[in-house]
């Protein structure tokens, strides 16, 4: 049990938050995408985080990992636009189920959590440096 395992735990949190940020920006970028490889409009993605045990860490200490990235099953937003090439027979276009406000909030929380992780990481570094300074 050393400072490196604390740093690893913090790093796992940082990469999880970075993934959340990437997924939120992908959702925002595709807020109006009506065509995808799978067919139909883009579906909002969500990140599922899970705790994973860390090597040689104290019991109770666990890292975090992205378990999967799932598609949000809520139905697409329908907008009346008969001129659109992707409009259905009634003239409705299915737009992605992305709510930009929700994505922005997600990005803010992810970025704050990332900052907290960086603070924790640099605290571990400063503690280790403190120990190296003993007897100097």
């Amino acid at each position: 049990m050393d400072f490196f395992s604390a740093m690893e735990v913090s790093a796992s949190g940082l990469s999880a938050q970075r993934t959340r940020m990437t997924v939120a920006s992908s959702n925002l970028a595709n807020a109006s995408t009506t065509r995808t490889a799978a067919g139909g409009p883009y579906q909002r993605r969500d990140v599922v985080l899970a705790s994973v045990p860390m090597n040689n860490a104290t019991a109770g200490v666990s890292g975090v990992a992205v378990q999967q990235i799932v598609a949000d099953p809520t139905p697409p937003r329908l907008e009346y636009d008969p001129g659109h090439p992707d409009a259905d027979v009634d003239g409705y276009v299915a737009y992605p189920n992305v709510n930009p406000v929700e994505e922005m909030v997600d990005m803010i929380t992810a970025s704050r959590a990332y900052e907290a992780g960086v603070t924790t990481l640099s605290t571990a570094v400063s503690m280790a440096e403190r120990a190296l300074g003993i007897g100097r």
Binding site: V9, S12, G13, R20, L49, V61, A113, A116, G117
Partner: peptide, 8 residues
């Protein structure tokens, strides 16, 4: 640190 990593 593990608590902070598990914020979400």
């Amino acid at each position: 640190a593990s608590n902070v990593a598990h914020l979400d």
